[in-house]
């Protein structure tokens, strides 16, 4: 079998008393677009932060393409939830995208012409080229989200983690972004996306991960994304309309 792009073993994370992510183990193959699905507070953001070592974990081993996380840092891209930064920071869109290149620059090298060019290309890909010199506080929420995406593209990673990249993005942009992610996938990259809109899961993702503190299921979308497992994940709180949703689900 080919090497897994990402392998997580026995990951457990607790902030206070109870673990919010418990005993999660899974492997994802390379070249896949993976949706992470689960109710609010299920631990989706925490799972990503744990994998990226942004929060301390109680236990767990992360391997990326067979190597440790630390040695593979350069090949990891991250799109945090949009509220996590101060948008009044004195900087413009192009500059934020260039930050994606910092990991490749090493300790002392400064970003130069080639970084700038790369950043412009990425801005262009997300359709934001004309806003390159705009102060970031003067961008709309959806535009800010696209800047974050362009920054992740600039990281030129092999595996991407994106926390709710579609929040506050209009339908047309969402389609454009998903097209972008599909292109990445075609190039053999692996993309994990936290996603809330169940109606588009089938259309977007090859693989689906159902998470609610524990890993409920992971696998190819048509096998995993079925009402039974969904009900289990959402604790039976999901009302799946027989004609519309499940029709879509079971298609």
């Amino acid at each position: 079998m080919e090497q897994a792009a990402l392998k997580v073993e026995d990951l457990t994370i607790a902030y206070h008393k109870k673990p919010v992510v418990e005993d999660v183990s899974f492997e994802v193959p390379e070249g896949n677009l993976i949706g992470i699905i689960g109710p609010n507070g299920a631990g989706k953001s925490t799972l990503i932060k744990g994998i990226l070592e942004l929060v301390p974990k109680l236990s767990g081993d992360i391997t990326i393409k067979g190597a440790t996380y630390k040695s593979m840092r350069k090949s990891i891209g991250y799109v945090p939830q949009r509220e996590s930064v101060d948008w009044d920071f004195p900087t413009n869109a192009l500059d934020v995208v260039m930050m994606g290149r910092y990991g490749h620059l090493g300790w002392l090298k400064r970003p130069g012409k080639s970084e700038k060019q790369k950043a412009m290309e990425c801005l262009d890909k997300v359709g934001m080229a004309e806003y390159a010199n705009r102060q970031i506080s003067q961008l709309s929420g959806g535009q800010q989200q696209r800047i974050f995406l362009a920054r992740a593209l600039a990281q030129e990673a092999d595996i991407y983690f994106m926390d709710e990249p579609f929040v506050g993005v209009d339908a047309a942009t969402e389609k454009a972004i998903i097209q972008l992610l599909m292109d990445l996938k075609e190039k053999g990259k692996t993309v994990l996306v936290v996603h809330h809109d169940l109606s588009t899961v089938k259309e977007y993702f090859d693989w689906t991960m159902l998470l609610n503190k524990r890993l409920m299921k992971i696998g190819p979308t048509q096998e995993v994304f079925i009402p039974e497992y969904l009900q289990e994940t959402y604790g039976g709180r999901l009302a799946i309309l027989p004609d519309t949703k499940s029709g879509l689900l079971l298609k």
Binding site: D10, T12, A14, H16, K17, P19, L58, S59
Partner: peptide, 17 residues
């Protein structure tokens, strides 16, 4: 109390594993 909690949590967890 939070140090104690963290230690016991870790212990429980590894025991269970």
């Amino acid at each position: 109390s939070s140090v104690w909690r963290r230690v016991s949590l870790k212990k429980n967890h590894s025991l269970e594993q």
